[in-house]
Design a protein around this nucleic acid. Structure first.
Lengths: 242, 242
DNA sequence: GATTTTCATATGTCTTACAATTAGGATTTG
DNA sequence: CAAATCCTAATTGTAAGACATATGAAAATC
């Protein structure tokens, strides 16, 4: 009969949670300096190593950053989109790799999310976004481009598409999802023929965005989704046989 | 001239990264036991406290779990959707609170994401999903329901809507986004009149899902988005005045 | 006044020790 | 012989103290 949602033990975890709560509740503001490790140790009535373990936990979540020296210490970190984004990619990548997600399910999720911002992108895309999209299409057209570079450019293309929506929250959420899928995408070998098709669809998307045509953008994305999922099925079927 | 993408210092961070890489690369499989802290200390030529700090970093990311006792140690954790989900909520919540995201931008992102899975939900919803949705509508209809409970039920409603899409990757991504917005939603006071309107729109959504009518689901969601954003604008405007 | 030196303070790391927990084997007991 | 008990070894959790190192600021010096 030991249920305990989370063991009451682990002082360092408790302390970390306590400080985390203080940050979430606004009792510790961004940029503010935490008490020194010795002071924290005294406050919580634990030893300094225990406090340090707690601080490392928070540092691993980018909640605090530490600085050495006379005026050093632990400071409440300003969580940037960049950092949050990286964390999300790490988590999502692990999740996908550990839960045997099928290519098909992941693909469906990815394109559903992307199509969510297609209307916004069509409405708000700037010339800079169009230029990025065209540049990636150019990269993808290079002959002798390795599969991984092709996939990376594909990710960059879709990242630009998402960014064109001009909503940073959306970009943060979607870019994480798209990038986490890259390892799965890398498993697919893109033949010359399939590349031509994908590039064609990418061009359709770019054209539709240029015209600010939301419906056409969505339709092109749908075609790309359908084609990508077919491709994935074929590759997996071939692998199962051969 | 001290650029250094990331300080070469911080042994515990290096060790954590090293182990993290091993897990990502598959050199350490799920469930596998890491060497004991003493052995790790020897392998990396550092002291045990340093190793422990590294392990705490990994534990904070749910990458490992530790167990005491004779056969204890650190084990590579199976990252569940649940854990990944919680992490994402924590990160997203912090991100939103620290970056002064406007209610409007967050709302736009949230509904864009939700509308992404509306067609899938309309297609795949089960009776159980419908029952959950109706139950939440019932909760929301209770008189004297505090604002926070109303918001919580709102989150649960949208969570059920997302789950109805039957894609766990999508659920993981979206539920995080929706729940992270709850603190922002809680800032809004819902009048009796606005509740009636929201409940009406929720009913429209449930009805459309029951009919498996994707277009109607999307249209209802769009109306709900529009109304919610109007409401947010009004509340903020009133707050600015009074 | 500008430069160098010193110093105080804080984190980073090591060492050693002990407490707590747990599995499995040894021992005792019925 | 079987079962319950105890013991032991291994491992994490925590503590205390020491030294190393970095860094900003004050003090001394030119």
């Amino acid at each position: 009969m030991k249920i305990m949602p989370s063991n009451p033990a682990d002082l360092s975890a408790q302390i970390a949670q306590s400080i985390r709560d203080a940050i979430l509740a606004g009792r510790l503001l961004v940029g503010e300096r935490l008490p020194s490790e010795s002071e924290l140790a005294e406050q919580f009535s634990v030893s300094r190593p225990t406090v340090r373990e707690a601080l490392k936990r928070l540092a691993a979540q980018n909640l605090i950053r530490t600085q050495r020296g006379a005026t050093g210490g632990a400071f409440v970190n300003h969580l940037s989109y960049e950092e949050a984004h990286n964390q999300q990619i790490t988590t999502s990548t692990l999740l996908l790799s550990m839960n045997a997600i099928s290519f098909d399910v992941a693909c469906e999720a990815r394109y559903a999310l992307e199509r969510a911002c297609a209307p916004l992108s069509a409405q708000r895309r700037t010339d800079a976004h169009l230029k990025s999209l065209r540049a990636e299409i150019g990269t993808q057209s290079e002959p002798d481009l390795p599969d991984e570079a092709f996939c990376a450019s594909d990710v960059a293309f879709h990242r630009a598409l998402v960014d064109a929506a001009g909503n940073p929250v959306l970009s943060y959420q979607l870019a994480g999802a798209v990038e986490a899928m890259q390892p799965l995408m890398n498993m697919i070998t893109f033949t010359a023929r399939s590349r031509v098709r994908i590039i064609g669809l990418h061009s359709q998307i770019a054209d539709a965005l240029e015209r600010s045509d939301a419906a056409a953008t969505d339709a092109s994305l749908l075609r790309l989704e359908s084609y990508t999922r077919d491709l994935g099925r074929d590759v997996l079927a071939a692998r199962a046989k051969g």
